[in-house]
Nucleic acid binder design. Structure first.
Length: 585
RNA sequence: CGGGGUGUGGCGCAGCUUGGUUAGCGCACCUGCUUUGGGAGCAGGGGGCCGCCGGUUCGAAUCCGGCCACCCCGACCA
């Protein structure tokens, strides 16, 4: 394929667009790959669409290779199936809803579990038909509260979503492993760096869920990893539980006056000024912080929850939310305090917490708060705190909860070293759904004993448009885009640097020759100055830039590597062979 | 949804406080000449209901009110 820049539907921009904030997104717009059509909506221009299709095709090939079969659903869907699984309501404002002329509710599919499940139900009814993996590459719609970061968080985006169907858990496990292997192969081919992280805490049973995160500071997901190879989503990190401590020589708990100390910082200052420790100064880590939240369940029930964390840590809202799902976490309001007179704002302590206490509020503690740990905490009276309160002796929480923030340097749960906190773009997610959708939509098959069994499912997604963005964000440099060859919009960017007839003729001939041997060529045959062409070539980011110009007088052309900036001089006569070698190796 | 901000040719921006000729600049685009190895020069040109609606006024891009859109921070986000 030979494309000419003189006629390509392309206009590069010299200035950064005002609304692009990420370097890769900025470059995609400046280089003429995408245009914003609306908030969270993007149009693909010719160069961008070539890259998009290459990424899509690699994903498709790897899905086909593992035996999944491609189908295609509508993006516009009827309400009923989503009503049946409860997601018409659960999805909330993120769901794009619309009505047809008869007033019937429809939605633009945010994900297609329901449709896949129903399709299999329509056609299959025997264990002999399973296992089955089917997938589609489909435009998805989510009315994001705040679209941002270009293609990374859009309202319309393309996702490859696939689903596996098995009769039993062992089958689901095998299907999951197959998909996992296919994802590894896919991202390896795409040249995308990735980390596979646990997306769910082990406490939640057999369901496995892992995310493929592309590590980059511009990513929206926070994860942790250790030198020993442990990696997990921040929500899923388990805290190693310390051994119990002896507490025989800890004094009896005693209440002290600590006026005007409603926060940890003020309490530490007061304690050091008026009640100094014998061995060392008090720190926030000596304080027991009790945080109240209100949980709201899908059925509307509201229940308060108290979470205890060491005073030097904050509660991580996302980790807490993951632990209490499906309940939603809401702040504990002044009205809630009024309704619970046993709770004294700013001075809440364990004595007033717990299912058997005066307040009756369920009290869950960070796993670090083990038997024998010694704390300073609220005395449930304004201006007073309890000192030397020992866990297991003076109070016992109702249970533990993983809600404290994870910090750089925290130990990995598997002993593989200190955790490092990093950011990543979620480019893939694999998930053992289990029987949730099969049950809701009654997908059953007959097993070998002639008994009806509910099918168990897995769901597996790759963001196609997001993968393009992730590649751009992780390869962009100060000059512009810098595509891995496998997804680049062409193999060679051929710059005609000069208006001399011999130069033009030689470049045209070279372009034709490269085209003839099957390389994709972007030929810059515009009447622009060499400087403009070089800048654009760097911005567009095709991996190999060939310059036919003044050195042609000596029978030489220049071959540049976009990524490294390396330049070679090559004889025109051997240019085709040389470039084939570069592009095919 | 809370907070902040911005809407002026395709892109980036000035003008608005203090209302008053034909609304301006850079890039991009068109024509001509010169130029051609790192975003060229000169000359000439085309392109705008100044986000929308209403109000004040002799007169509104500019002042007032309402609405809409978009962006940023946060909340939210299989």
């Amino acid at each position: 394929m030979l494309r000419r820049l003189s006629s390509l539907f392309l206009r590069t921009l010299r200035d950064d667009p005002a609304d692009a904030e990420l370097p890769g997104h900025t470059a995609l717009v400046r280089a003429g790959y995408i245009r914003r059509a609306g908030s969270g909506l993007h149009s693909w221009l010719p160069l961008g669409y070539v890259v998009y299709r290459k990424v899509e095709q690699i994903i498709r090939e790897e899905m086909d290779r593992m035996g999944a079969q491609e189908v295609h659903f509508p993006a516009l869907l009827p309400r009923e199936p989503y009503e049946a699984t409860g997601r018409w309501e659960e999805y909330g404002d993120t769901l794009f809803r619309l009505q047809d002329r008869r007033g019937n509710d429809h939605l633009l599919g945010p994900t297609h579990e329901e449709l896949f499940t129903l399709l299999v139900k329509d056609l299959y009814s025997s264990y002999k038909d399973l296992p089955l993996s089917i997938y589609q590459i489909q435009t998805k719609y989510r009315d994001e509260a705040r679209p941002r970061a270009g293609l990374l968080r859009a309202r319309e985006f393309v996702m490859k979503d696939s689903y596996s169907f098995d009769v039993d858990d062992a089958g689901l496990g095998a299907s999951y492993e197959q998909l996992r292997a296919a994802y590894i192969a896919t991202f390896d081919r795409l040249g995308l760096d990735y980390v596979i992280v646990d997306a769910m805490s082990g406490a939640m049973g057999g369901s496995r869920s892992e995310e493929f995160l592309c590590p980059t500071p511009v990513g929206e997901d926070t994860f942790v990893r250790s030198p020993g190879g442990y990696a997990a989503n921040a929500e899923a990190v388990a805290t190693p539980v310390p051994d119990p401590l002896p507490y025989d020589d800890v004094p009896t708990a005693h209440v002290e006056d600590t006026p005007d100390t409603p926060t940890i910082a003020t309490l530490v200052d007061h304690a050091n000024a008026h009640l100094p420790r014998e061995d060392r100064p008090w720190t926030a880590a000596d304080m027991l912080k009790n945080v109240l939240v209100m949980l709201t369940y899908p059925d509307g029930t509201r229940t308060p929850l108290a979470v205890a964390v060491p005073g030097d840590r904050d509660v991580d809202d996302k980790r807490l939310a993951a632990q209490v799902e499906p309940a939603r976490v809401e702040p504990f309001t002044d009205a809630d305090f009024d309704a619970n007179p046993a709770l004294v704002k700013g001075y809440i302590g364990p004595a007033a917490l717990g299912e058997d206490s005066a307040s009756g509020v369920r009290y869950l503690a960070d796993p670090r708060i083990v038997e024998g740990t010694r704390w300073v905490t609220g005395a449930n009276e304004p201006g007073r705190h309890v000192f030397d309160l020992v866990c297991g002796r003076d109070f016992t929480p109702d249970g533990t909860i993983e809600a404290a923030e994870v910090r750089d340097g925290d130990p990995a749960p598997d002993g593989s070293g200190p955790l490092e906190i990093a950011r990543g773009i979620e480019i893939g997610h694999i998930f053992q759904l289990g029987r949730k959708y099969a049950e809701a939509l009654d997908l059953k098959v007959l097993d070998e004993n002639g008994k009806l069994v509910t099918v168990t499912m897995g769901s597996y997604g790759i963001g196609v448009s997001r993968a393009v963005a992730a590649i751009a964000e992780t390869t962009v440099d100060e000059l512009g885009l810098c595509w891995p060859r496998i997804v680049a919009p062409a193999d060679v960017h051929l710059v005609i640097a000069g208006k001399d007839e011999q130069v033009v003729a030689a470049a045209e001939q070279l372009a034709a020759d490269l085209d003839a041997v099957g390389l994709d060529v972007l030929l810059d045959d515009r009447k622009a100055s060499p400087g403009v062409k070089f800048k654009d070539a760097e911005l567009i980011g095709i991996p190999t830039i060939v310059v036919v110009g003044k050195r042609l007088a000596d029978g030489m052309i220049e071959v540049r590597d976009r990524a490294s900036g390396d330049r070679d001089e090559v004889a025109v006569d051997s240019a085709v062979d040389h470039l084939v070698e570069i592009c095919r190796s």
